[in-house]
Design a protein around this nucleic acid. Sequence first.
DNA 1: GTGAAAGCGCTAACAT
DNA 2: ATGTTAGCGCTTTCAC
Lengths: 341, 341
Amino acid sequence: MDHIKETTIYDIAKQLNISPATVSRGLKDHPAISGKTKKKIKETATKMGYRFNTFASNLRRQRTNTIGVIVPRLNSHIMSSALAGMEKAANQSGYNLIISQSLESSAKERANALTMFNNRVDGLIVSLSSDTTEYDHFKPFTDKTIPLFFFDRVWEDSKCPKFVIHNFKAAYDATRHLIRQGCSRITHITGNLTCHLYKDRLNGYRQALLDNGLTFHEESVICNDLSIESGALVAQTIVKAPQLPDGLFIASDTCAVSCMQTLKSMGIKIPEDIAIVGFNNDPITRFVEPRLTTIHYPGDEMGEMVAKNLISLLNGNTDILQATTLVIRSELIIRESSGIK
Amino acid sequence: MDHIKETTIYDIAKQLNISPATVSRGLKDHPAISGKTKKKIKETATKMGYRFNTFASNLRRQRTNTIGVIVPRLNSHIMSSALAGMEKAANQSGYNLIISQSLESSAKERANALTMFNNRVDGLIVSLSSDTTEYDHFKPFTDKTIPLFFFDRVWEDSKCPKFVIHNFKAAYDATRHLIRQGCSRITHITGNLTCHLYKDRLNGYRQALLDNGLTFHEESVICNDLSIESGALVAQTIVKAPQLPDGLFIASDTCAVSCMQTLKSMGIKIPEDIAIVGFNNDPITRFVEPRLTTIHYPGDEMGEMVAKNLISLLNGNTDILQATTLVIRSELIIRESSGIK
DNA sequence: GTGAAAGCGCTAACAT
DNA sequence: ATGTTAGCGCTTTCAC
């Protein structure tokens, strides 16, 4: 844009009749520089409107102090919480975050990964798009041993550190809870099954059925994009079925809430006619009526943990990360939407 | 981390017995380079595992293709939507986003601004912390004519482009709506009044009262941090007052929803006893009972618009941005929480 | 405690 | 259509 000449360490050096090297050191509080010189340097720097040139430094040091993050969407409860946690950790340690979203498109994820690579991020944190089945866009990172961390939706077969919840168990608990509440015809509404997250939840659901003497029916599993719109649509499908389910386990709160509302508007009583359990503990679950039973897991802590571990690794503390998979506690929060029938 | 030598354009040049300049041009699809040469260059680059060095390029070109964003919080409906919109626009135009949050602390905002400055972002997009009253941390940007754009919570007295909604009008409409619904004792719950956003809303509220023959009472304005917790607290304060208000205009949906729920739990009927209007059209408003009347404005469009305009300016299309303040349409969405009494 | 100088990888003006 | 060359501003090794 503008071409007003920037002040460099050379300008400061000339001004003070010292060498650029001394200026560089002085600005960085190098121990070999005398306090007096340092003070002079810093004052002159401020006076001359000097600003540190990160690129020149990066170019020289071959590091960026930048962490790349790719998430499916920025604006979902879990993801924005996780990002907030990461930002906090990064900021504390002097790292920057470059954030991009794949919008659930593997192609966009691929493009974003390349950009991150070219931007020479020191490390990359990814939560996968739900349709990602190939992972060669991450090969450049693994090839160059650039730390690659996954969270929530992870690349299961990789050796990269993974931060997840126990989706199978969470789904198992949710389903078992519905069964204990007296449900025997439980429908599971979930996302793209190419994604382990939803596959695991499905398996947990199925196992809970089997373990409790119930039969698993393919027809009782409905896959969609778990959006608010899909929640309403699903409700309409459900009521048209020959027999109403008496329980719903929905893999996302926003979808669940929308589904619940549509069901209610059609005169179906929650939980008397249909009990419902969601997933994520979105704030919304506490304010709908009945309040939604759900699976809680701390997105912000998860994000903070991922970032902290990555930074720690980047700073050379390799010992901190011992496990390649870190399972973060999740829990069933029982509320009225699955209440005693 | 690792110190495996990176492939540079020099390596490619040597390999092909051409000059680095040709390689540089070839990789950039410069028209002067023959198709055959380009093809050769690109193939060799891929084969040799070349990756473009953004820093060297940035250092040389004195540009970064990076936009800095500072928001109060990453994880609020409006902000995460706005960020999603910005990311979309940036990504389309080959820009990166560096995002940080001030967490409603002016000090942190200051620190973040400095980091952005040192990172030589091509432009900066800010939504202010609610306690920001001094703006000298933005002076480096204005001094160097680095484009500085504000949105939602803006620096009113600056000459920077501002993207806002008409907060006064929105609040006026909301309050007038309550009055038309028969409310005469309307309490306004809002945020930090040092922030124009909340001041404007307060003024709109006051004016609506006055224009309709009602008296404005200082005591009918309650300021807090508009959090979910504060919503519940406010509800408890309200019921202890000598006379119950018959209307509430709350400057944030999440707070409003929480307040409403607490009031309901204490046996107060919404809207019969107290009508409520919120602000932001958070998805949550459509799922509470009664559904919350609120002010809608499109965060994602706002974000996209800000980013697009900034990028357009960065690309030299100075004509696109004509107004310094762009007021984005907002509207009152009437739902049951303020229903006919 | 401070200085000299090379070089990180790319770009663009100028040359051919 | 391609080559030469001079930096962009910082860091760091080696010297004094």
